[in-house]
């Protein structure tokens, strides 16, 4: 297990380096930030001075080497726009996004798995068919449109839920969170539901497919032949068998929820890191873009590692670290 963790760490480091290079190349291609940072009336000498000051006069590979050197010391650069460390900007905004993403994930898992089980156990019933039909709707409607409709319905017409902001927050372990206050919870409900809808539909379909396959297996019939009740047969025998693909998807989707909740954050004016990323791209604030994507890559790597560990706990046939059992 330890050897496995160390090897994974090495792989992760390699991924991080490759990603940083691609991101660096990418932002380089977007455009020259000097055009946006310097007053349009500024003369050539002033432009040159700014270019040199930001280190943009050097060849890209040299810039990248400097970036790597600083990154190794934990410095991901300073924002061109705000002149503060990029990582500080991101860490200020990220907790709000993580809270939103986790709330969305709780909704998706809490509703998606039970609904998927029902649809899988009674595929031909009215309830099963309705769940599937609704999941198609959840799949195909664009997030921004659903967000607007939610605001129209719950904020404008019914006036039940606030349409923007985080509401009242309290500090939890030094991080401001919304979900512990009633006001914050009301603010969190709609964006989280909006963000959850697609994942919810995905989980419903995944759980249903797994359930339909699992209930036909002999071990389910054998469990029933032992005289076990339906709760134990479904909740333990079926569910534990179908959890591996579900956990995979949850892991991947959690990463993408955190990294790319931008549309929902924009609609509900949620002060998260998605908004920061959009602003940084608009202002060509390269250090923030690069640092943001680095943080997201680290998040993905960490989540995937957690998923792999979960696999081995869910399915004893999966053994971490040995190449022979890697199926």
């Amino acid at each position: 297990m330890l050897a496995y963790a160390i090897r994974r760490l090495g792989q992760s480091f390699f991924v991080l380096v490759v990603m940083s290079f691609l991101v660096f190349l990418g932002v380089f291609a977007i455009g020259n930030p000097i055009e946006l940072l310097v007053n349009p009336q500024a003369d050539e000498a002033e432009r040159l001075r700014a270019t040199v000051a930001l280190g943009l006069d050097k060849p890209i590979l040299e810039q990248y080497a400097i970036f790597l050197g600083h990154a190794a010391k934990g410095d991901l650069g300073r924002s061109f726009v705000f002149n503060v460390p990029a990582i500080q900007l991101i860490l200020e905004k990220l907790p709000a996004t993580i809270e939103l993403a986790l709330a969305a994930m709780v909704i998706s898992v809490g509703l998606g798995i039970p609904l998927g089980l029902i649809a899988g156990l009674k595929p031909h019933s009215l309830v099963g068919r309705s769940i599937m039909a609704l999941s198609i709707v959840g799949f195909s409607l664009p997030t921004f449109w659903v967000g607007l409709v939610l605001i129209m319905l719950f904020s404008v017409h019914l006036g039940w839920l606030p349409s923007n902001g985080r509401g009242e927050t309290v500090m939890l372990l030094g991080i401001p969170v919304s979900f512990l206050t009633w006001d914050g919870l009301m603010h969190l409900a709609m964006p989280a539901l909006n963000l959850a809808l697609f994942k919810l539909s995905l989980l419903v379909r995944l759980t249903r497919a797994g359930t339909r396959e699992a209930v036909l297996q002999d071990y389910v019939k054998f469990a029933r032949a032992k005289g076990l009740g339906p709760g134990r047969v479904i909740g333990v025998h079926v569910l534990k068998n179908i959890l591996v693909p579900i956990v995979t998807v949850i892991g991947l989707e959690l990463g993408s929820l955190i990294g790319f909740a931008i549309v929902t954050e924009s609609i509900f004016a949620w002060p998260g890191s998605g908004k920061l990323l959009i602003d940084s791209i608009n202002l060509l604030d390269r250090p923030v873009i690069v640092a943001y994507l680095m943080v997201i890559v680290v998040l993905f790597i960490a989540i995937n590692f957690a998923v792999d560990v979960l696999y081995s706990m869910l399915d004893p046939r999966v053994r971490l670290g040995s190449s022979s059992a890697a199926h």
């Binding site: 002999d218 071990y219 019939k221 005289g227 399915d315 004893p316 046939r317």
Partner: peptide
């Protein structure tokens, strides 16, 4: 029925590879 199954009447299935749940001890 459930009180009877596995209690008064037990069943053994054909394929031992399939009857035990692979993910439970």
């Amino acid at each position: 029925w459930r009180g009877l199954r596995g209690n008064r009447v037990a069943m053994i299935f054909q394929d031992p590879m399939m009857t035990l749940n692979p993910v439970l001890r």
